[in-house]
């Protein structure tokens, strides 16, 4: 099985793929509704926001940082764009651009603080996250916006097909945005100079600056990109739920981080791939859906997330140790 997957995924990703296939088989046997076409489409759509955010977090993780302020950024940009749209009648594209630009700007603030204060990014972003949230609640008083314009809330369906059972499966705007983000992030990270520099930076920051990588510029890109995606995710989230609630994204940080880590990104940087992150999302989505259909309590789901992370980290650690041991022996032999 692993050999079969080798051309597409690396080692840890193919083990993830194997796990997914096993889980799918188990659920398919135990629930007839699992992974019907319409169920799958809904599932994908409901994970679009998580995936968009995870793509950005993945980039930050590869660079060797952690950013947990994205949920706050998404909430702030969402609210400001919604204000612009409802109060001042700003049309669709400028409003979305405003959200994204604002997000990118807030990301750049994180980058600048991390770079100049020379503090680990998790601490910087805990602080900025708290500030962004607090400012949002302070200025809005926690009020919600329900009267979003139609262009924001109308469902955009690109494709619709009827399934055998008579249900409809739809390809919708969130899915398309999600796929675009995944593809663009994948290309950015694996095919462009910037992406490779991000991997290099995460792998050995000291060496990165020695070979002449411009760290500040790269960090602005990394955190700015996550901010940009947070703006986009905020827009998509409001599009799906037809309202803007300042606290709606609160608490999503951990599950997004979890997805990225499940997908093979490492907290010390330099590792992981977009494909792996997509598999991570897939695994969580399938687990959640399957357990749901089996009638397992949603609280239990958090236990499953935690276990999944622990298991995936242990598998990586064990394989690496084994690799190292193997290497040691071969060195001895060839002498």
């Amino acid at each position: 099985m692993r050999k079969l997957l080798a051309p597409v995924f690396n080692r840890s990703e193919s083990s993830l793929a194997v796990v997914i296939i096993v889980v799918v088989l188990i659920f398919s046997v135990s629930s007839p509704y699992f992974l019907t076409l319409s169920n799958t489409a809904d599932l994908i759509e409901s994970y679009s926001v998580t995936t968009i955010l995870a793509a950005g977090v993945f980039v930050v993780l590869v660079s060797g940082g952690i950013d947990i302020s994205f949920a706050a950024v998404a909430s702030v940009t969402q609210f400001i764009a919604a204000m612009a749209a409802t109060k001042y009648g700003v049309p669709a594209f400028p409003a979305i651009a405003l959200a994204c630009a604002l997000g990118a700007l807030m990301g750049c603030v994180n980058a600048l603080l991390t770079y100049y204060l020379n503090v680990v990014s998790i601490i910087v972003t805990i602080a900025t996250s708290s500030i962004f949230y607090a400012l949002l609640i302070y200025f809005t008083g926690g009020s919600e916006i329900y009267n979003l314009p139609d262009w924001w809330t109308d469902r955009v369906v690109f494709l619709r097909f009827e399934t055998a059972s008579g249900d409809f499966a739809r390809i919708t705007l969130p899915m398309v945005i999600m796929v675009l983000v995944v593809v663009v992030t994948h290309l950015l990270m694996s095919r462009t100079h910037a992406g490779r520099q991000i991997y290099a930076l995460g792998g050995n920051p000291e060496a990165a600056s020695r070979v002449g990588i411009r760290i500040l510029r790269l960090q602005l890109l990394v955190y700015g990109y996550l901010g940009f995606l947070a703006g986009l995710a905020g827009f998509v989230q409001a599009h799906r739920v037809h309202q803007v609630v300042p606290t709606a994204m609160f608490g999503t940080e951990l599950s997004v981080l979890a997805v990225a880590i499940l997908g093979g990104a490492s907290l010390v940087g330099g590792l992981g791939s977009m494909g792996g992150v997509v598999l991570g999302v897939l695994l969580l989505a399938i687990l959640q859906n399957g357990l749901n259909l089996l009638g397992v309590s949603p609280y239990f789901f958090d236990v499953v997330i935690g276990l999944a992370i622990l298991i995936s980290i242990s598998v990586t650690a064990v394989t690496q140790r084994r690799l190292r041991a193997k290497r040691g022996n071969s060195e001895l032999r060839h002498e």
């Binding site: 095919r191 462009t192 100079h193 991997y199 290099a200 050995n204 060496a207 020695r210 070979v211 330099g270």
Partner: peptide
């Protein structure tokens, strides 16, 4: 000062990745 997470060829030719950020 190598990049332990990257391949041999990428480490050797890393200078060629320092150009304009969005080029392939």
């Amino acid at each position: 000062s190598l990049f332990p997470n990257l391949s041999v060829w990428e480490n050797i030719a890393i200078d060629q990745e320092l150009g304009a950020p969005f080029l392939a």
